[in-house]
Simulated assay, not measured.
Amino acid sequence: MNKYCFGVDIGGTTVKIGLFTTDGTIVDKWEVKTNKEDGGNKILPEVCASLEEKMQEKGIAKDEIEGIGIGVPGPVDDDGVVLTCVNLGWGTFNVAEEVSKLTGIANVKAGNDANVAALGEMWLGGGKGHGEVLMITLGTGVGGGVIHNGKIITGTKGAAGEIGHMTVNYEEEDSCNCGRKGCLEQYASATGVVKVAKRILAKSDEVSAIRDKDNLSAKMIFDAAKEGDKLATECVEQLGWYLGAACANIATVVEPDVYVIGGGVSKAGVILLDVIQRHYEKYAFHAHKDKEFKLAELGNDAGIVGAAKLVINE
């Protein structure tokens, strides 16, 4: 095995890049702008140019690079074929082959960004020491990644792990961003919990610290719940109910050792883990109880760490 590898996490605004030794140590990390001009055709050439510059800066030869791993915001199959990335302007093409061609480095692998982040948390973060991991990312939406036996479950079209679009409420009348109704994302994301809070507030005249806020946020709701605010606590309970029940259902199929919770909402901390686990235990099949729920540990580095892991075979 060679000494170094690159982990690349392509986002809609910036591309995060890490240079690693093959034991997982970050040597350097940096960002470049995601240039979406010309249908996103400039993104990969500019990323590869940045990799070349870093190798020259560090005095690293190409034959010292074990490989390049890449996370992208869209479905990716096991061969590195991206099946449309709307946010980047990409259609269907083989990202791994293109990067290999641009860099001259043969070992290039690509994966969906949420799945890759889950792999990173399994390797060096909240799921370290476990081979069966489910990562749930609670941000503007709800993302997920399933790790089985230390490897990403991608599905036939690279879209496995989209737990944010599990239907959890068949009575919902409002549409999710995906066009369906009643998705987990509508209740458990940062935007979803605010929407739930507004519904709860509309049905009550009770005084609450979260009432009449112009820019109500998930953080405000959790902070108020920590202080014992009744309506804020009801919002948190509802989020925990949806997530806990969803995790119990997921366990009947993949039964992870540990659930790793990341994303902006995870900054709420222990109160979030506790409410999810309590509702999980209520609905879990008897053989699936007593699972660990942990906070993600890698933050914004999860994507580059997981991308690096794609090309490292321990």
Results as ranks from 00 to 15, higher is better:
Y4G: 04
D9V: 03
D9T: 01
E37N: 08
E37D: 12
P45W: 06
V47C: 01
C48I: 04
Q56W: 00
E64S: 05
T84L: 12
T84K: 13
C85Q: 04
N107L: 02
V108Y: 04
D113R: 02
D113E: 05
N115G: 14
G125T: 06
E132N: 15
L134E: 12
L134S: 05
I136G: 08
L138K: 03
G143K: 12
V146M: 14
H148A: 14
G150S: 09
I152K: 06
K157E: 03
G161K: 10
E162N: 10
T167M: 06
N169K: 04
Y170P: 00
Y170I: 12
N177I: 11
R180L: 12
G182S: 08
Q186I: 09
Y187C: 09
A190S: 11
K198M: 06
K198I: 00
L201N: 08
E206F: 01
D212C: 05
N215W: 05
K226Y: 07
L231V: 15
Y242P: 06
G244F: 15
A246V: 15
A246S: 15
A246H: 14
N249D: 15
V253W: 13
P256D: 14
A268S: 12
G269K: 03
D274A: 11
H286R: 10
G299N: 09
N300W: 00
L310P: 00
E314D: 06
